[in-house]
Design a protein around this nucleic acid. Structure first.
Lengths: 223, 223
DNA sequence: GTCTCTCCATACGGTTCCGTATGGAGGAGG
DNA sequence: CCTCCTCCATACGGAACCGTATGGAGAGAC
């Protein structure tokens, strides 16, 4: 049981930084504390990285790969758009993801984080939008619902991380998420027109309806 | 145009702290920078407050009053539950609110912020839940939809603050918010049962339908 | 006018972090 | 064995804050 000196590499620092983001947010990406946690000193760090921003950039790149690329790749292997969206919902509400996502979104005003976050949000919503258009929604409605879904996702993980007691557990959580997914996929029937009945897709849910193409339903806000 | 020395009071510091939270988050609540901005020095601050945490507590108290109490009071003056929820939606998506809300939610891991935030979320969701039960939803469904609404609210203001270009503007935004409100109020028809009519409120929208009382619709997640 | 009480300015020490400088350990190649 | 090259430890200076100590400046009481 010797106290091996593992000789850290760039990747070790990057992984530690991502972990720290999940635990303490951007403030956790601090050279000296990370060095202490890795059992080394700043001397090591400044050998592998020019400065703190370089570490941050590496961590963000790693985040982009594992929190967007990998997820979308996996999910995209599903058979049809509905299955893909469902798989996306399930994958994305896995609790290990939440802390890093929440902390990074919370730091989206940081100059290094902002562009990465913009890119990630754009890619994610674009993917959802694509699935929805494939289901028959017109572009505007698909974008609306994709944004709706993403906002709900954001709020949800934020509640899970910050106010966990506000979020149901176990089967109640699944029921809740089912309701949410149904709201995104289903016919929300916001205005008076478009009252065609629902074409249930094979897997039981209402999906695939070209909804009313905007204009109409601001009536919900202005009586 | 003499350089009047306005002789600051406790409230000036508190207001400045809340403003700083809106601009820079909790980190903006720093004694020396605030003093500089107020044109004074730390000597003033430590006369009015014991320490930084005391200022934070005062700012959080002020936030509670103007960002929850006042809003709920105003909104509750509306005639019926539907109108109250609609007014709440409108009031709460007013853009001046968003930055403070987002930054405070992002700091909900701070020991001073956590209890205030827990309390605020509990009160807000409880209010929404009460309106929904008044519309005929049973308790479980009302809670589910209230949480759904709150999560969407959270995600929305976060996007508005962090990635504003992802959120539509003007009429498209109203259409979007109309869709969201309709999704919360409307019958999302996730399962097959439950078709009793609701106590329709006067103001026009489809609302007040007692939906299915859970158990059923986790089918949306597990095909 | 002088006293006193409220409020603020200045100066100091302490903490935590960033970044630099410099001097080794320790193994791979010769 | 010696050398070089990679990697790390230690020591230092600087910035940004927090909190304390202490000495006034100003305005009302009398």
């Amino acid at each position: 049981m010797a106290v091996r000196k593992p000789r850290l590499g760039r990747d070790d620092w990057t992984a530690a930084a991502l972990t720290a983001i999940g635990e303490q947010g951007l403030a956790g990406v601090a050279v000296e504390p990370l060095a202490a946690r890795l059992g080394t000193t700043k001397g090591s760090f400044y050998w592998h990285f020019a400065n703190r921003d370089a570490l941050l950039a590496a961590a963000l790149s790693s985040w982009d790969e594992t929190y967007t690329d990998a997820i979308l790749r996996t999910v995209d292997a599903e058979a049809d758009p509905t299955a893909r969206l469902r798989a996306l919902f399930v994958a994305v509400t896995a609790s290990e993801r939440a802390p890093v996502e929440v902390h990074l979104h919370a730091a989206a005003d940081h100059p290094a984080v902002a562009p990465a976050m913009r890119r990630a949000v754009a890619r994610r919503t674009a993917y959802i939008t694509a699935q929805l258009t494939a289901l028959g929604f017109d572009q505007a409605e698909a974008e609306r619902r994709a944004l709706f879904a993403y906002a709900t996702y954001l709020g949800h993980i934020q509640l899970v991380v910050r106010i966990p007691e506000a979020v149901p557990q176990g089967p109640a959580l699944e029921a809740y998420l089912g309701t949410v997914l149904a709201a995104v996929l289903g016919n929300s029937k916001t205005a008076a027109n478009s009252s065609q009945a629902g074409t249930g897709s094979s897997s039981g849910m209402a999906a695939g309806r070209s909804a009313n193409s905007e204009s109409s339903n601001s009536s919900a806000l202005s009586p």
